[in-house]
Design a protein around this nucleic acid. Sequence first.
DNA 1: ACGAGACTTTGTCACTCGACTAAGTCACTC
DNA 2: GAGTGACTTAGTCGAGTGACAAAGTCTCGT
Lengths: 210, 210
Amino acid sequence: MAHVPAAERRPQIVEAAIGLMAREGVAAGSTRAIAAEAGVAQAMVHYTFGSKQALYRSVLEELGRSLVARVQAALPTDADFGETVSALVNELWRTVTEERERYRLLTELIMLSLRDPVLRQVASEFTHNLDATAARLLSDAATRAGQDLALPAEEIARFFLSGFDGIVTRYLTDDYDLAACESTLRLMLDTTIALAVSDARLEPGARLER
Amino acid sequence: MAHVPAAERRPQIVEAAIGLMAREGVAAGSTRAIAAEAGVAQAMVHYTFGSKQALYRSVLEELGRSLVARVQAALPTDADFGETVSALVNELWRTVTEERERYRLLTELIMLSLRDPVLRQVASEFTHNLDATAARLLSDAATRAGQDLALPAEEIARFFLSGFDGIVTRYLTDDYDLAACESTLRLMLDTTIALAVSDARLEPGARLER
DNA sequence: ACGAGACTTTGTCACTCGACTAAGTCACTC
DNA sequence: GAGTGACTTAGTCGAGTGACAAAGTCTCGT
């Protein structure tokens, strides 16, 4: 193997880790298997990242980065509020279905991270980053359309992203019920838009105790 | 260790597995660790269940069974539609918050199961069972209140349960943002009820591409 | 009370894991 | 072009894994 600076080795190993783990699951992501996938010696992984945890951290960050980048790139330049939100949601869904294994890995990795104090931090930042990005996109779209949001953008973002996350879990569980997932997603999208633009809030509160 | 029929040994080991794995994560659920938690020899686990996979299967089934049982037990005897749904959702949320670690384990286990052909089946059945139960509870509540549902009960059930699942994921990710989760849940509940009883559907379709 | 079969234990097998060491090899700087 | 430091490799360590075999122990039906 030719000598390559660690800075170039890093993304190469991260990509190998993503490819392998997306294909065979997080549990298959041993340093040995990842090294083999990348075509380097096992000790290389520890030399480059220091620990398995640090590699996982990089993998998690890379998965989050690429997801957000792809969806943000689909932002329409001129469209009304509903169209803008629809376009973004469509791109998000398209990403999940086209890169299903990659997205499944992201979900697995987040669950795994919750047991590790360091990775937990990364997962938490990922979620908050997603929330903040969605909220910004929402309020930008409203401003551009000259509309006021009926609820705080953060609240709408959390509402939709939570729902989306649940739908994705179902999509991953049930291979073949794509139609049901898309129907639920459509409902979630329509609801979110209605929630965002309608002045009349849906039966205000007090349904939940405390 | 006294001699005990396998039929009694089984739930004892399952409970030990749940306790241990809820506390320390699925990854900590080796047959040795589980046996130690249950106070039996390691070989006992294989004698009783045949394989680790079969034990995990039993654990998954038990977690699902107890969750559904608890929520169903909270069904009000006489209440209008909104109150009934609210009561059930409150009980569901209370279950998740009170037995947080147990519920986190259920989530972890489902994700893990998706990589195993046998366990995948169990996870899929669990989800469908939840959907069917929720749909039945919904249409019963509507019937009792003399109301018609504006959408098929199954669709409403899937909508809510997807959203709930996503909120739980967030709750597990963010220890301290309980308030945000409960606020999103309230929104999800109000939306679901509005979706169920309103004649006017929210902006019918065409927002999602094929 | 005794035999059979269900339960239990100890011990081991073959394998995998993350991490590290020590001995290299290459590329870049002076 | 020599040498220094960054990169690469093979090899190993100790711990842990699921599974199983063999031998021992108890319980229940007869």
